[in-house]
Amino acid sequence: MGNKTVNLIGKNSMRIVLTLLPIIGFLILWQLAAMFTSIGNLMPGPIQVIESLFISFAKPLGPHTIQMHALYSLKRVMVGYGSAVVTGIIFGVSLGLSKMFRALFRPLFELIRPIPTVAWIPISILWFGVDEMSKYFIVFYGAFANVALSVYMGIQRVDPVLVGAAKMLGCSERQLTFKVVLPSCIPYIFSGMQVALSAGIMSVVVAEMINSYEGIGWNIHAGQQTANMTQVLTGMVALAIFGLLMAAILRQVERRMCAWNTRNT
C-alpha cells in the first residue's frame, strides 16, 4: 500500500515534469533567441511579453485594460457560441430524426458549410453593421456547423441493440427519442461543443481583427498596425490563456453531466 502511494506520487511528479519541461524549454529558447540573435530586433522575449501582460491589467492597451478586452471577447463568444449550441443541437437532431428535414436542408447545409468564416465578414457587416451583431453572427457561423454535425452523427450512431432493448422493454417510438436516442447523443453533443468552442474563439478573433475597436483580437490587429510586436504577442498569450480556461470549464461541465461516460471509480 505504502509502496503504491510512493509510486503514485512518483508518477504524478513525473507527469508534471514532462508537462513543464517543453514549455520551460521553449520559453528559455525564445528568451535566448531574443537576447542574442537578430530575432531580438524584430520581437520581444517572453519576459517582456509576460511583463506587458501583467502591466496591461492595470494600464489600458488602447481603450481598455486586457481583462476588459477579454470580457468583450467573452461576451461575443458567449452570445454567438451559445446560440450556435442551442440551434445546432436542434438542427442536428432534426437532421438525424426526420427524413423530410434531412432531404430538405442537408444539401443547403452542405453547400454553405465549406465557406470559411472569414469570407462572411463583408456580408455580415453589410447585413448587421459594424456593431456587436455582426460579431455574434461570425462566432455563430463558426461554431454552428460543428455542433450540428456531431449531434447528427451521434443520432446516426445510436446502438441498434440498445434501441431494440428499449422496444422490448415497452418503449414507444416517442419515448425512444427522449429516453434512448437523445441521451446516447450527449457525448457527441459535448465533443461537438468542444470543437465548436475552439472554432468560436477563432472566429471572434478574426471578427475583432477586421472589424472592432476592442477585444483580444483587436489588440493583435492594433499591434500589427503600429508595429508593436509586444502588443501582438501579449494578445496572443492572452488568447492562449482565454482558450485554455474556456475549454477547461466546458470539460468540467461535461464531467459533471456525463459522469457515466468517464471512468469514475
Binding site: 441493440v161 440498445l162 432493448a165 446516447s184 457515466w260
Partner: peptide
C-alpha cells in the same frame, strides 16, 4: 417477452 443480450446492452447513462 424479455431479452438478455450477449453485448449486455445496458443504457450507459
Amino acid at each position: 417477452r424479455g431479452v438478455v443480450y450477449q453485448s449486455i446492452a445496458l443504457f450507459p447513462w
